[in-house]
Simulated scan of single mutants.
Amino acid sequence: MKVLLTGAHGQLGRCFQDRLPAGWQILATDSDSLDITDAIQVARAVEEFQPDLIVNAAAYTAVDKAESNVELATLINVAGPENLARAAIAVKARFIHVSTDYVFDGASPIPYTETDTPHPLGVYGSTKLDGEIAVLRVCPQAIIIRTAWVFSEYGSNFVKTMLRLSRERASLSVVDDQQGCPTYAGDIALAIIQLYSQHAVGGIYHFCGDRQVTWREFTDEIIATAVRLNLIDRRPAVTSISTDQYPTAAKRPRFSTLSCDKIARYGIRPSDWAEALNTYMTKIA
């Protein structure tokens, strides 16, 4: 069993490598070792390695910077996945591509399903949606996993930011009118492995955390866990603010909860993010 992984140094990429099943051989690549926007380089690498599975965990994820870096975001989020999909077809490999809740506008009152019509609010979401379309056009049997609010022990993420700010400041102001489901990257990695191992039908699948919260509520849980584990000396005061009070270059969806009913058919349960948060913070404690 051979798997070619892109985005090897990101949150998902590193968690995927940590959970690699015994007997799986991996070629873990990053932007320095494999430029996914270069179709010839991708085709050559895939032809030489002959993977059974290609997992694309690479993406341009700087949501605000994407608004002014449209060309680069498009290359990485659209051309890159399409190149990998074409290469997968050429060697008869399965292709699993990771996408985002940002393909939706957040106007739904109920969790989004895979059949709901996307309507991204910004460049990041638009390029990720265009990437999905390009992948399925080239490789209809590909699997696309949409996820949201990713955190882990690796890289930069909301959990790490809140821990740092809790040590530095006596008070924090956190957005309390955006809702979503935090998702542990290690659980996304396991979902990818399970979908491949169970020969899942191609198409789009949603996978996220098991409990919906606002950013403020997520912060409260992070701080409570940090206090219990003595990761911070004191509990900062947390004030709720609105999205309008925290302006950003890109608009965020107000509601990002994804329905995980489809992926549950393969026995894959939503990520227990509170347990994952506790396990991660216990480890660093």
Score class of each variant (00 low, 15 high):
K2W: 04
G7Y: 01
H9T: 15
G10L: 02
P21R: 06
A22S: 14
A22D: 15
W24G: 04
W24Y: 14
I26S: 11
L27K: 13
L27W: 10
D30R: 05
D32N: 15
D32T: 12
D35Q: 13
T37Y: 05
T37Q: 13
D38C: 11
A39K: 14
Q41L: 12
A43M: 13
F49Q: 11
F49V: 12
D52G: 13
L53I: 10
N56S: 14
N56R: 03
A59H: 04
A59I: 07
A59F: 05
T61Q: 03
D64F: 04
A66M: 07
E67M: 13
N69R: 09
N69K: 09
L72R: 15
L75D: 08
I76E: 06
I76N: 05
A79I: 10
G80N: 05
P81W: 12
E82P: 00
A85Y: 07
R86H: 12
A87S: 11
A88R: 06
R94T: 09
I96P: 06
H97R: 01
H97A: 09
V98N: 04
V98M: 11
S99T: 07
D101G: 10
D105S: 13
A107E: 10
P109Y: 01
T117W: 02
L121P: 09
V123Q: 14
Y124L: 03
T127Q: 10
K128C: 09
K128D: 07
L129K: 11
A134F: 03
V135N: 05
L136K: 05
R137T: 15
C139N: 15
P140W: 08
P140L: 07
Q141R: 13
R146D: 06
W149P: 01
E153D: 12
G155Y: 08
K160V: 02
M162C: 04
R164K: 15
R164M: 08
L165P: 00
A170F: 04
L172T: 04
L172Y: 06
S173P: 00
Q178G: 02
Q178N: 07
Q179K: 11
A185Y: 07
L190I: 10
I192D: 09
I193T: 10
Q194S: 13
Y196I: 03
Y196W: 15
S197H: 11
S197T: 12
Q198R: 13
Q198H: 10
V201H: 08
G203R: 09
G203A: 09
I204C: 02
C208I: 02
G209E: 08
G209Q: 07
R211K: 12
R211S: 13
Q212K: 13
Q212C: 14
E217Q: 15
E217Y: 01
F218C: 13
F218D: 00
F218W: 12
E221I: 09
I223K: 00
A224C: 07
T225N: 02
V227R: 12
L229R: 10
N230K: 15
I232H: 07
R234P: 00
R235S: 10
A237F: 09
S242L: 14
T243Y: 00
T243I: 04
T243F: 00
Y246S: 06
T248N: 01
T248C: 00
A249K: 09
P253Y: 08
F255D: 00
S256R: 14
C260F: 03
D261L: 04
R265G: 13
I268Q: 07
R269F: 05
R269H: 11
D272E: 12
D272L: 03
W273R: 08
A274P: 01
L277W: 07
Y280W: 11
M281Y: 02
M281W: 05
T282Q: 15
